[in-house]
Structures are given as structure tokens and as C-alpha cells.
Design a protein around this nucleic acid. Sequence first.
RNA 1: CGGAAUGUAGCCUAGUGGCUAAGGCGCCUGCUUUGGGAGCAGGAUAUCGGAGGUUCGAGUCCUCUCAUUCCGACCA
Length: 591
Amino acid sequence: MRFSQIFGHTLKEAPSDAQAVSHQYLIRGGYIHQVAAGLFSYLPLARRVLNKIEGILHEEMAMIGAQEITMPVVLPADMWQDSGRWYTIGSEMTKFHDRKDHDMVLAMTHEEALCDLAAKYIRSHKELPQLVYHIQTKWRDDARPRAGLIRVREFKMKDSYSLDTSWEGLDKQYRAHYQSYFNIFNRCGLDVLAVKSDTGMMGGKIAHEFMYLTPIGEDTIIYCDSCGYNSNRQVAEFEKPEAVKEDLKDVEKIETPDCKTIDDLAKFLDVPESRTAKAVFMVATIQEDNETEVEKFVLAILRGDMDLNETKLANAVKAKDLRPAHEDEIKAVGAVPGYGSPVGVKGAYVVVDDLAAESTNLVGGANEAGFHLLNLNCGRDFKADLVIDIAAAEAGYKCVNCGAELKAEKAVEVGNIFKLGTRYSEAMNVTYQDENGKLQPVIMGSYGIGVGRLLSCVVEQHNDEYGIKWPISIAPFQVEIVLLHDKKGTEAQEVAESLYEDFKAAGIEVLFDDRKESPGFKFNDADLIGIPLRLTVGRRALDKGGVEFKVRGEKDNEIVPVDEAVDKIKTEIQRLEKELRDRVQKVEYKD
RNA sequence: CGGAAUGUAGCCUAGUGGCUAAGGCGCCUGCUUUGGGAGCAGGAUAUCGGAGGUUCGAGUCCUCUCAUUCCGACCA
């Protein structure tokens, strides 16, 4: 490809909207164009990277026996009604009517479509197990797209679906993906960590997330350096500190103006946050039986220095869904937001974190604006319907396994693998006949990787002050020829042109900067775009007997004779490819 | 969906009620130049996000609205 003909161009300055490094470089390099919030066009350079990534995905899927299919992005609503998600997912899912006035849906993911397909094609245990996948567009009308390609509304995902007759079979396919995903990320040059993401209710349900650690991430990982424990904060376990125990003192009501947060309160009273009680008002949706759902008002009490872990709370009250309570709902039970506690509250299910229950003489809300109560004690001053661990893990707490201090790190989820079990197959009647002729639900798994998010995470990991440094495996081109024009002769031009032809003939992906620009301009663009290998053709190098070879990101360069340039580049490509290939290793599966 | 900020040419910015909206980058033409974002000369590109209002006069003040970004809620 000649640089002069590429659709799109580079920018010296990034638009002020772009804040994440990957967002800035991808825009400045002429890779992507933002159309609206969370909507991007991919220009030729980015498309080439996506093609490379998708190539790796296809190869790795083939390695674990997955067959490629394609399911539509527009789906009829009835399958989403069958799975129940038509009713449970909010405005993130886009619904519309087609010309015949049928309810339609833009696919957020393809479990329903796959189940619909499997229900029609899977008949016998002899046809199982199966593993199918596609790389297809998803639409999620996210309330808050951000950071360029990190969180978007329309994106492509590689999603695969396994179908098995047994939990052992599912486990096998699950572990195959676990390994496969490490291979994929390693081949793309991205460092990831696999963390447990949901132990959930429903017994055997297990999920892992593949996390790229970065401060711009939205997930928090809790990990332990000394024993290797790690987990998404949502489900992380930790050892609670000892409760402070004193002799019980009498309750005392005090005026606390403008103390709506624990922080305000602790400062105002000059007590540590750990001596306060925090009230969190939630509404849980609970499935009583197949037909009926009820909403339950839940009042969660924690020690003031701890955060509520909603996943733990949802599990504790067996909630299908959990949301923050609205202000009128809070008032309806007799509580006051900002000054809340269980004291005097009626009609709420009170869940008290075990540590808060053991702690004595805490400061809590009086359920009266501007007032708190001193010396609250669980059991004496208010009753707990349930005492259980509902606190979120945080850095500084102790590891449950080894007692070392836990650490926290932000991360972006670039992939996940999920043991669905029979959740969808039962709802959507995906069954097969077993050896005895009995109908059984198929046991499913689903496995996803966001392609654009992976691309942007690679840029986050591989860049410097000048631009992107692509890993060779997914670089839009393997080598860039930078021609420096020379008025005194045509030699440089001729050498560059003939090298360009030689590279193409040798099957090397080459970008030829043939533009009539100054050297500095071209070097800066080359660094920005980030092609791994560079050959500079100009008077100075020719006088020294060749062309100048340089690896992106390395300081040194060397003169290579013109007739050895193709071999040199071939060797270097192989060297860089080997580096990435060597990253691919057997990983130990961690439950 | 809550809180905040910002909208001036393709990009970055100036413009603090008063003349024809200014500069840099980029773009076009010509000449010159060619090893880390060259120089000179000429040129094109803005309904100042939109609507309404206040005013003799609005890019500037007010109201509404739209969009984008950031923080939070949310995230199958």
C-alpha cells in the first residue's frame, strides 16, 4: 500500500474529546472515526488490524474444534420473550417493529439465537457435543460509552457456544476455551489475567473474566501477591478485621447537620469510619415460584468503612435482580436518606453484615434529617432479619487463603467464559434424546471476546510518547518503507520503488511512504502509526552502502545492503513472530 | 438516569456586549526545500451546535433544546 493513497490521514493534535491514550493514537493515526457516542467507523488501517485479530480468532477457534456460523443481528422478539430477557433487560436493548409490526430486537448477544437454532437442529445425543461460533455485531445501547473503543455501543464480538450432554463435557469445553483465550491474547501481545467473576447462586455456575490491567479500566480486581489468589471485586473474598467490642452504652440522639455521607459524619464527629454504621437501601426482585415475582425492600447495614457488595447481597436474599431503592420507597418504610438506619423502620428486610453485627456502639442514622444516634447495637436497638457477609473486598484487607495483604487494581474485561448450564436450554426448550429416548436439556456454555476492545487494549499496552507500537501479529503492515526524496538524484526513489515491488512479491505486508513530505514529517507519522519494522531509503544511507533498518521503539538502527533488505525483513518478521509465539504456553486452570 | 464541564473552519485555540470573527496546524496553487512535524507568496474553508429571548447592537448575557466528554448509577 502506498501511503499517499490511504483513505484517511494523520493528525498532529488529538481532538480534545479523546482522553484515553488508545483513543488519541487511534484517532491521530487515522485508524478510527467517531460517528456518535460509542459509534465508530473503522478506516483501512484499523480494518487491517481487525482482520489480523479475527484471523487469530478463527485459527484458535479451529484449534478447539469450533465451527463458524453466522446469526443475524436483527432478531425476532419471541425468542427473547422465551428466554425471559425481553422482560428483564431495560433500555440497553433496542426494540423496534418491522413493517409487519412484529416486535424485533437488535442482538446484544446471541444466546437466544443460538438456542433457537440448536432447538431446531439438535435431536439426538449422537449429535453432541457441539461448538459453534461467529464474529458478529452486537448492539447495546449503553448509557455511558467511554474511552474510545474501550466501551462502545456497537461492537463486534467473537462469541462461541458449546452444547453438551453432561457437566463433564461442558467443563472440558470450558477449559479448552480457558486455554484458547490465553493463546489468543498472548498471540495479540496482550497481557491478561483470568479472574473468577461469578460463583453465583445455582450451584455449578462458574465464570471467568479475562482482564487487562490498566488504570482506565472499570472493573476492580482484588489479588494477593503471595498466594496468587485473584478475583473480580464483585465476588472477591477476604478476611474481615476484628470487631471492636466495648461495653454497651446507652443510645443518644445528637444533631448532625449536613452529614449525609459517612465521610461527613466521621469528620463532623471526629470518629473513625469504622465506628459508624452505613445503611444501604435496595429493592430485590425475588422469584417465589415459576409464576410469581415479588419485590422486597432490603435494608443493608455495614460498618461505615466498608462498601456493599451487591452480588453477595443478591445471593444472600436470593434475589434475581437488585437495584437501589427510589427515594419515595425509602420514605415509605420510614427511613430518611442520608440519615438512615433500621431504627424505627417498618416493612424492610434488614440484612446486617456480620462485622457490623458484632461491632458495638456504632453511630447510625436517626431516620430524621439532621440527626444521628450514638451507641447503636445490633440486636439491642434494631433487629436483623439476616446476619451474613455482604461487604465488598478492598485493598488492604487480608487474603482468605494466606492472610497476606490484598491488593486492588483496575482492569478492562476483554473476554469472558461462562458455564450457562441449562439456564437457556430449559427456558427455550433446547433438548436432545438421550440413550434411553428421554428428552434432556442441553448443557451450554458461552464464551466471548470483544474484538475492538481487544484492539484498543493492545494499543493501551503497546505505545510510547510518539505513538503506537504494534505487535507484529496484528500490525496493519509488517514493514514501512520511508522514502526521503533527494533532489540531487533519483536513486533513492528508484531503490524505494524497487524494494516496494520486491516486498510485495515476497508476500510481505508493506506500507510505502511515497509522499512528498519532509523527513521529520514522515518519521513522526511512521512512529504514530506504529508499523513494527522500518526501512528508510535516502541519500545518507545509500552513501553508506544501503538502506537504514530500524525496529519501532528501539533506538538503534543499522545499514542493510539493498539486495539483502528483503531477507533482513523476513528474518526480523520471523524473530518478532517467534517472540509472540513463545508467549503461548500451557496455562494452569484456576477455578 | 443523576452530577459537572464543553460546543467558534477538518484539528487545536483566541475572542470577557461594539467596526468585516482572529491565529496556529491541516487543505488548494506556485516557487523553493528534503535525515525528526521546512520556507516564502497567494488562496479556499465558519449560517460561532440549534431555537427563542434581552439589547440600538449578542460568538459574548438569559431561557429552552441538542450534542460530546468526564464523574457516578448501570453494564445481557
